[in-house]
Design a protein around this nucleic acid. Structure first.
Lengths: 156, 156
DNA sequence: TCTGAAACGCACTGCCC
DNA sequence: GGGCAGTGCGTTTCAGA
């Protein structure tokens, strides 16, 4: 039996365009795909409703906005109780310096990507925010010297 | 002497809105800031031209698009010649599986974030793409069990 | 640098194939 | 599922303060 909600090549082509440039007009996409506006418009609306498109965002320049320090911070918990882990995940959501947080397989429990304006701000974050979370064990930071590549686009 | 290109609070407020939701209309932002449409429109255009806004993108759902495997891969070079490093950075740009690549301080040279559809695809990537780059030394992968948080928004 | 108004083009709807 | 025509709204421009 076939999946009736599966995407065809047209849907995928639309998604590939929008994840690179969300400002492309329906008209532009339509002419690129040799379609009229209506089907493209309907497909986009469906992709939004079905959750394939989660949101539309502006990507800002962190250098111009004076946030030059990016680090990856490996964090381990002291004890691996369900409650402690859930608490950690809730706390991390609050910290706006944290751009990413992944629960990892392997030696280390969590990997955080953190962006701040200065070394002093980073020290503040580790000392007064991260370390204050209950049951935090070791944390180990490595600094980004240069961002070589970064994209939110998926390869599909 | 003051920086004439510095952002005021209105500019920053606009950027904070757009990095969360790029579909907000100029009208909506204007009423939120108690301004009329024109100044908000002009400010956004300026922020785009000056590079504060780099681009607008759609964020897609990687689960729905069947790309469930995310890993972080630490890579070290065998020798640290300028030429080898530049070559590595150029090659990495090509690989669409690579969402992020940072040149790091510390033991490891590069940290890569990679997203693929399956373990087999990941094996293919490491074996036939990453390992084929000239002068690659050790590589060490850790798998993401769960994404706790992810945002492209800057905290400023 | 803002307000307000006018012109334009696209988003969005409904109907047809 | 796609094409076509009409309407409303947002974008874009401009005069004035």
């Amino acid at each position: 039996m076939e999946n009736l909600n599966a995407l065809d090549e047209t849907d995928r082509a639309i998604l590939r365009v929008l994840q690179q440039d969300a400002k492309k007009t329906t008209k532009e996409i339509a002419s690129q795909l040799n379609l009229s506006i209506s089907p493209v418009y309907e497909r986009i609306r469906k992709l939004e409703q079905q959750g394939y498109i989660k949101k539309y965002v502006a990507i800002l320049d962190q250098k111009l906005l004076k946030r030059p320090i990016t680090t990856f911070c490996q964090v381990s918990m002291r004890y691996h109780n369900e409650a402690f882990i859930e608490n950690f995940e809730r706390e991390i959501q609050q910290f706006e310096e944290v751009q990413e947080c992944c629960h990892m397989a392997g030696q280390v429990d969590f990997l955080l990507k953190i962006n701040v304006e200065s070394l002093e701000a980073y020290h503040d974050f580790v000392r007064h925010k991260l370390s204050k979370i209950e049951n935090i064990g070791v944390s180990n930071s490595t600094f980004v010297l240069k961002e070589i590549k970064r994209t939110s686009a998926l390869y599909f």
